[in-house]
Design a protein around this nucleic acid. Structure first.
Lengths: 196, 196
DNA sequence: ACCCGTAGTAGACAGTGTCTACGGATCTCT
DNA sequence: AGAGATCCGTAGACACTGTCTACTACGGGT
């Protein structure tokens, strides 16, 4: 793919996305990205004030990618919110498993900390989808917590699953390799059990 | 605290624990730790083959600390498993909030990845406590998933909550600042609702 | 007395992120 | 058209990092 005249800024981000997929989250030094993009090590500074800012831009691309995969799902015809939630959750876990480097980058502590890079906001659209699905999937119970809270808890659960699974902690500790039963347990728990 | 003759290895770890509490997870360069411990930058290498190995040892101390706080809880007299689970969860969240640097270190992707540092195992004893409590708290239902699976899902939920709360994503996205309602939702979800 | 393994020092090396001075375009205004 | 300013990338310096390799001091065992 030739991207010689789309502007260096976009090229740097694209190079970073490529690099993190090929070499993992540790190969993303500022100078290496510049090298791969064919520019000098000082060039990125014109477009990103700091190394972390460039990393954040790359991570944002990861959020966009994840968002696209979820949207793709929603446009697929199936309208049952529970099924959609299940599929969405699987996508999240698959994304983490299949794009390990990017996933690690997206949730690096130093990038999220204090929201210096404005990276938190990148997950908002995804979360809105989640809230909507939760609201539709849950049996209307007037006394219960609001949908946003349930969605928050579910998101936390999903994210925790993805993380612990990536580190293989879950396998070590539960003896089960697959995330599916844990995922089903989580969904049933938050949404109430149903008949599959 | 004077620790001049407990062996350099232990002193380096202690220095690191101190340092991460004072300066955060980014101030933990090998050379800075050596400086704070009053030795040359080559000295740590006698006791830790690599920088990451030293960081892992420091992180392990974090897991031990967290474990102690949980044990403290279990020895407190209260025997109701649900209350204990609630208290344990709160401790987990408090620990993350109050020991931010250490928590970030404990879950740094590069330290956990591939379990190169044998760090995963450090969370096993904690998890065993969790499994035990879950088994006791859950109404015995023969058809349901085994306790280890529920405990795994709950742990993932708890950990996800701690993470997302640390970078304030939950507040941004749910509008609620406190983790308590989310925590209650999670516990009720995984263990079945009860009367408080 | 000798040797040897241990523990810490000191220097070198490649690599990193950031900063500054510089060069060459390109655009604008008179 | 000519001159000035602004943009964008280069090149080098700087302090700092993790790792590696001599080298030194010391202590105990045969």
């Amino acid at each position: 793919m030739d991207q010689s005249n789309v502007g260096l800024r976009a090229r740097l981000v694209a190079t970073g996305v490529d690099l993190v997929a090929r070499q993992g989250a540790d190969g993303l030094s500022l100078r290496e990205i510049a090298r791969q993009a064919g520019v000098s090590h000082g060039a990125p500074r014109r477009h990103f004030p700091t190394h972390q800012a460039l990393l954040a831009a790359i991570a944002r691309e990861g959020y966009r990618d994840l968002g696209r995969r979820v949207d793709e799902l929603l446009a697929d015809g199936d309208q049952d919110p529970y099924h959609l939630l299940l599929a969405l959750s699987r996508r999240y876990l698959e994304f983490a498993q299949g794009n390990r480097g990017m996933f690690e980058l997206m949730f690096r502590h130093d990038l999220l900390r204090g929201n210096q890079m404005g990276l938190r906001e990148a997950s908002v659209p995804l979360f809105e989808v989640l809230v909507d699905l939760v609201a539709r999937a849950r049996p209307a119970r007037p006394g219960g917590p609001p949908a946003a809270v349930v969605a928050g808890a579910l998101w936390a659960n999903l994210h925790g699953l993805a993380q612990l699974r990536l580190w293989e902690s879950l396998q070590l500790v539960t003896g089960v390799d697959e995330a599916e039963p844990l995922l089903r347990a989580a969904l049933d728990a938050h949404l109430g059990p149903r008949d599959h």
